[in-house]
C-alpha cells in the first residue's frame, strides 16, 4: 500500500514538474523557432512549430531597422558599469553596517530597510525634471548614477558580511591595514560568492531594465537594446514582420539566458537561494 502510494506521488511530482518546465520553456523556444523562419512562411497557430527553411535573414533585417551595435553597446555599458558600481558601493556600505559600531548604526540600517517599500518609480515625474536639470537626459549615466547604492543590495550584503569573522577584521587592523584596505583586501575576497550571485541578479535586472531607459533616453542612438526592440512593431511603418520582431526578442533574451546558465555552471548549487535568504 505504502509503496504504491509513493509511486503515485513520484509520478505526480515528476509529471507536474515536467509540465512546469514546458510552460517555462515553451514561449522562449517558440520565439527562437519563429525568429529563424523566412518571412514568407506561415507563422500562425501550430504552423509556427515547423521550420521549413531556417534562415538568419530576419536578423539581417533587424540590423537595417535599428542600430543594433550602438544599442548593444549602450545596453552593455549600462549593465556592466551599473553592476560594478552597485556591487562596490553596496558592499562598502554593507561592510560599514556589519563590522563597525558607530552612533546611529541600528537606526540608519532600519532606515535603509524602510526605503525599500517606496520605490523610485513613485517619484518618476520629478525625477525626470531633476535629470533634465542635471543634463542627464539622453545620457547613459542617468541609468547608472541613481542606482549606485541600492537598499536591497546593502541589506543582502550586510547580512552576508556579518558572517565574516570579526577576528579577521581585527587582525588586519592590527597589521596596520587602513579601513578601506580592510574592505578591499580582506573582506571583498572573503565574500566573493555573495558578490557573484548579487552581480548576476543585478546584471539580469539591468539588462532587462525598460522603464528608466524609456523615460531618460529619447534618441535612437542612445536607446538600449530593450527600448529599440520594444519599438520594433512600429518601426517599419507598422509593417514589421513578426519574424523580425521575434528575432529582436531573441537578441535580447538569449544573452541573458546564456549569462544565467554560465553563472549556474560556475556556481555551486543553491547559490541563488542564498541570495534571497530572509
Amino acid at each position: 500500500m505504502a509503496s504504491k502510494n509513493n509511486r503515485g506521488q513520484s509520478i505526480a511530482v515528476n509529471a507536474f514538474m515536467i509540465f512546469v518546465v514546458l510552460v517555462c520553456l515553451f514561449p522562449v523556444l517558440w520565439m527562437c523557432f519563429i525568429s529563424v523562419k523566412s518571412v514568407g512562411e506561415k507563422i500562425s497557430g501550430f504552423a509556427a512549430l515547423t521550420i521549413e527553411h531556417p534562415t538568419l535573414a530576419n536578423f539581417g533585417r533587424l540590423f537595417e531597422l535599428i542600430p543594433v551595435w550602438t544599442n548593444l553597446f549602450n545596453s552593455g555599458f549600462t549593465t556592466v558599469l551599473g553592476t560594478i558600481t552597485t556591487l562596490f558601493f553596496c558592499a562598502l556600505a554593507g561592510f560599514a553596517f556589519a563590522k563597525y559600531r558607530f552612533p546611529g548604526r541600528a537606526k540608519l540600517f532600519a532606515f535603509v530597510v524602510a526605503t525599500m517599500a517606496i520605490s523610485a518609480e513613485a517619484g518618476a515625474i520629478p525625477l525626470f525634471v531633476i535629470m533634465r536639470k542635471m543634463n542627464l537626459i539622453n545620457s547613459l549615466w542617468s541609468l547608472i548614477i541613481p542606482r549606485i547604492a541600492t537598499a536591497v543590495g546593502i541589506f543582502y550584503l550586510t547580512q552576508y558580511i556579518k558572517d565574516v569573522p570579526d577576528e579577521l577584521v581585527e587582525a588586519s587592523r592590527v597589521d596596520g591595514c587602513r579601513e578601506f584596505g580592510i574592505f578591499w583586501r580582506v573582506v571583498c575576497p572573503v565574500i566573493k560568492p555573495a558578490l557573484a550571485s548579487w552581480a548576476s541578479l543585478t546584471m539580469i535586472a539591468r539588462w532587462n531594465d525598460y522603464f528608466w531607459p524609456l523615460l531618460f533616453l529619447n534618441k535612437n542612438s542612445k536607446y538600449t537594446l530593450m527600448v529599440s526592440v520594444s519599438m520594433l512593431p512600429v518601426s517599419d511603418g507598422l509593417a514589421t514582420p513578426w519574424q523580425v520582431i521575434l528575432a529582436g526578442c531573441t537578441l535580447v533574451i538569449l544573452p541573458a539566458i546564456i549569462l544565467y546558465l554560465l553563472m549556474q555552471l560556475m556556481q555551486k548549487a543553491g547559490s541563488f537561494s542564498g541570495a534571497v535568504k530572509g
Binding site: N208, M226, S230, L246, C249, A256, L259, Y260, F272
Partner: peptide, 14 residues
C-alpha cells in the same frame, strides 16, 4: 528559474 531571466518587454511581444 529561466522565466525570471527573460525580459518582460520581449516576452510581452511574444
Amino acid at each position: 528559474f529561466l522565466p525570471y531571466v527573460c525580459a518582460s518587454v520581449a516576452m510581452g511581444l511574444i
